[in-house]
Write a protein that binds this DNA or RNA. Sequence first.
DNA 1: GCTGAGCGA
Length: 450
Amino acid sequence: MAQVQVPFQPPLSGPNGAANAGGNQFVTTSLYVGDLEWNVSDSQLYDLFSQLGQVVSVRVCRDLSSRRSLGYAYVNYSNTQEAARALDVLNFTPLNGKAIRIMYSHRDPSIRKSGTANIFIKNLDKAIDNKALQETFSAFGNILSCKIATDPSGQSKGYGFVQFDSEDAAQNAIDKLNGMLLNDKQVFVGPFLRKQERETAMNKTKFNNVFVKNLSELTTEEDLKKIFGEYGTITSVVVMRDGDGKSKCFGFVNFENADDAAQSVDALNGAKFDEKEWYVGKAQKKYEREIELKGRFEQNMKEAVDKFQGVNLYVKNLDDSISDDKLRELFSEFGTISSCKVMRDPNGISRGSGFVAFSTPEEASRALSEMNGKMIVSKPLYVALAQRKEDRKARLQAQFSQMRPVAIAPSVAPRMPMYPPGGPGLGQQIFYGQGPPAIIPPQVLPIFLA
DNA sequence: GCTGAGCGA
């Protein structure tokens, strides 16, 4: 008889199973562990999770070819109670300086993708950590995932996310906590909205002034008056022109009535006149436009930085005689170089360091291993993956925390309740408990950071 | 001021 390979399937009664969609009376033994720092290893996870029960298997998922960590792992226990306790106790434990985030394994991505029952919280006191957030919101229902946004050093950015397993729980949390005081700060709690959704929500605000661009050079105020006049009474119309009276191909139409303005936008945005497709929208105030442009600029910068992740090499100990071209020549055998630069001081003297970006991470990692330590002119070259500036600090701290002994408290005393039974009253302060942390803080203080 | 990302041997 032919051998049939049976793929691993978690029990159907658990959160993985269709039989238990949304229910929480069953739990499984399979945990998804996400938000891992790049260097977190199987054995590190094994050591940590073994302290709460019998671990059957641990695996950090890795890219098949590069073996790079994908930033998540699976930990399987032999029984459900141990898994449940591990999730409870170990969730948000820092590993290599970064808090891990544990969920029950749920391979069907439909819930994750739907983004339902997902809420956003802002104006959070910086002292409120993942655990405090979890405890505060768990009063309203079962939490699938929850997290405080942090900068690379782990400092709270003052906002966070909670995803529940039901819309009711999410709505209830919003109703009860929005506008409440948490640690003396009034928090905003609302449904999570993607950027796009938020913008369209914002644009529902009333306006009278309409912006129109991509006009033909021949389009006049009279033309606009006639076309927009179909939708209501116009109080002013202008086509912007340069000093010579030449059209800048954009203008403004102000309506007496905001509903008419909105109607004209709906009807005319994207319409074609004289071969030109018009953009028609709410006219932005100068400051609104500045905010949008600034946001877009920062977004572009971020994307540019992301694009270089894993493909950009930092080189140092370069001989002063090495130029951009020479540097490119040295690395060109490993692949396609998308950019290459020797850093120089204001007098044009080489700083002895530079960057070489390849088109793929594979090329970059081969160049790294082949070129690091190679004698160039008179000195051995140092080659490493270039890091983002903000990530450097985090990386140093990760190394630092790796030296700390980590131990699990034998049992965890309950934290103080967040607020009296029945939930907080309007305007009532919510207090955070001072229960002991799940992880005993380091007993040995390592040497200070450079 | 600040609106993620995420599932295998």
